[in-house]
């Protein structure tokens, strides 16, 4: 089932506008509140047969989609379409964070970011070879994890004091026990096979206060993916993300001790719930010297990630500059100290 939002005033294709947060018609400027548009398909179940071939509701052309595509534009007429059956039933997202950065803003911010790279080659900075900018809703699982941590450790407090001609080192030993409840909420893990995990992790954090109930019109005009991995499959990644946080929390409860040696440590982690959400990402494809570079921007906060090419010349320049500067400062300091000593 393909859903296509047609303007009720002029009949043009409507798309989501990141500025107003409404479904907007680019021709006549009509705006519709997304909350008011009926969502009859969200709970519907579709048979497999129906999902085999999609036809654009606007022009009738066959939509070229991948298996995981949930929203796209018609390659023929350009109308934004949503593939409802890939967003319904089990595949229905709970929440969505709509784009707050428009395509133009994203392009502008990205060009600025390119120019600010301290180690990026000059040609890359000024080249302005953005091949494509794609607004994409990436499927994420948000996990709420509860951890019960119990630890017992032998700790020491060391005090050094002087008395007479002697220096005394006093070591006090303690048997320390901690029982901690830790809740980590909405830990995001990207559920799309296509997306680079490292890139997606760096895009965090998203502002969850802007999480909205999922409505299909949010996707109009953007690409969207459905999840490739279930929440069960990705629970391990969420736990791995949280594990270092738990360790640091635990060790923070041992503040004040000079040494801690654990004798017992048990971390019992449980998944309380998981939510399927779509998070906005601008994807940039950039050509430089025959190679394609992929960058991603958090569609809500504007944070940009991705490895730009590095300029050997600039690296050498910085290295020489910093080394020379440090050497100069050290020399001056040592001269001053030696001079001030006499």
């Amino acid at each position: 089932m393909v859903i296509h939002y047609k303007c009720q005033s002029c009949g043009d294709d409507m798309a989501f506008d990141s500025k107003s947060g409404m479904l907007t018609c680019p021709s006549c400027g009509r705006r519709d509140q997304i909350e008011e548009i009926p969502e009859e398909f969200i709970t519907a179940r579709f048979t497999d047969d129906e999902a085999k071939e999609y036809h654009c509701q606007n022009c009738g052309a066959v939509l070229i989609t991948e298996k995981s595509t949930a929203a796209t534009s018609c390659s023929f007429c350009g109308a934004g379409v949503v593939l409802a059956d890939r967003l319904s039933g089990d595949l229905a997202p709970h929440k969505v964070i709509p784009f707050t950065i428009s395509k133009d803003e994203a392009a502008k911010a990205f060009r600025k970011w390119c120019r600010n790279g301290l180690l990026t080659p000059k040609g890359f900075m000024t080249g302005d070879r953005i091949k494509s900018i794609t607004g994409m809703y990436v499927p994420f699982w948000l996990y709420d994890l509860n951890s019960r941590v119990q630890a017992r450790a032998l700790c020491t407090k060391v005090r050094v004091y002087e008395s007479g001609d002697y220096i005394y080192t006093e070591t006090r030993y303690y048997d320390v026990f901690r029982d901690i409840n830790l809740d980590y909420v909405k830990v995001p893990v990207d559920a799309s096979k296509k997306m680079n995990d490292e890139l997606m992790d760096k895009l965090e954090p998203y502002d969850y206060s802007r999480l909205k109930e999922f409505k299909m019109p949010y996707l109009a005009g953007f690409l969207a993916e459905k999840y490739d991995y279930s929440d069960e499959e990705l629970a391990g990644r969420a736990e791995a993300k949280v594990a270092p946080y738990i360790e640091s929390y635990l060790s923070s409860t041992f503040a004040g001790y000079n040494s801690v040696s654990y004798q017992m440590k048990s971390i019992d982690m449980k998944k309380i719930k998981s939510q399927y959400v779509l998070l906005p990402v601008w994807m940039f494809s950039y050509d430089y010297k025959g190679k394609q570079y992929i960058f991603a921007m958090n569609g809500q906060t504007g944070k940009i990630v991705g490895k730009p090419p590095l300029s050997t010349k600039k690296i050498a320049g910085w290295f020489a500059g910093i080394a020379g500067g440090t050497f100069f400062i050290l020399t001056v300091i040592s001269q001053l100290v030696a001079g001030g000593g006499i």
Binding site: Y166, E170, T171, R172, Y173, Y174, D175, V176, R178, D179
Partner: peptide, 12 residues
Amino acid sequence: RSDQYLRKTVTK
């Protein structure tokens, strides 16, 4: 939480 004092050693 519990912090049980066990013993102390002093070296000089």
